[in-house]
Amino acid sequence: MMAGRGKWISLAVLALLIGLLPLVFPSGYYFRVGALIFVNALSVIGLVILIGYAGQISLGHAGFAGIGAYACALAPEHLGLHPLLSLVLGAGISAAMAALIGKPILRLKGYYLAVATLGFGILVSMILTNERALTGGPDGMNVADPGLRSLLRDMGWRLSGGEFWYGISGLVLLVGAWLALNLFDSPSGRAMRALHGSEVAAATVGVDVARQKLRAFVISAVYASVAGSLLALQNGYITPDVAGFLHSVEMVTMAVLGGVGSVLGATLGAAILTLLPQVLTVFAEYEQLVLGLVMVLVMIFLPQGLLPSIARRLKGRDA
């Protein structure tokens, strides 16, 4: 499938896009949209590992994004932690949580797994909504500025908020993509893909199925958590919506649309679904309709997702 060379091509394409697009941005608003795309793409890459590599479904990953986001909001206030360390703390909590709940629920398959993860996401969202004293309830809460931008300014590097977060989330996305692509060809990645094909066959050749599933689940939870943290930090304000069911569905939709087995495809899916509401503001009322239509068409005509299907078609013609 993807050789070592493919990995570097994917990374180079991504890096070039992130680095060169700002040259054609007509206004600061595009930096904001770009930063949002990168943050979404990051959590979707996590899902590529879980769904695309290991073949497990999750409808509750927004729960981990919520944990990451609220870690960045709460830890600086209550523990006096630096916002960046809070991001790491959030990722740690998400990983621990994923390991804890992953053990029992990854024994489930198909619909049952979907419903169990769904339950987890809703639980996190409910806690964030109802623990008013701690989280500010449905109105949300402020997130402290990490102070990195003013640090850069002191070093003589003036950046607008949009430019700064574009750069940071772009960098984190590159690192995330690099790690995910590395995993693909590693023994763990191969084991995950093997159990995706057939759990029985994978177990027969010595793959520890439960362990690899759990590993994929934990890794993807960390991706979602870091994405949630980045979102909270760049918005400076966070509400329980980030952990909501709709956000979980949005993530899976992005992954499926772009191509659930492909890191670049995931980025493309995130880009399309982040851009659509911005492009469709004129027909805001029909936004859901267009989204639904796009999904149905992709599922019927390009069931592998946009990027892999197009790539395959191009290759087929070359040969």
């Binding site: 904001r32 949209v33 304000y237």
Partner: peptide, 27 residues
Amino acid sequence: PNKARTFATRLIEDDEVVAIIGGSTTG
């Protein structure tokens, strides 16, 4: 709230408005 922030950025940076009204909810 996430979309609201994007639209606020868009209103100011792209549409170059002189004033904003909105924010139906506290978030």
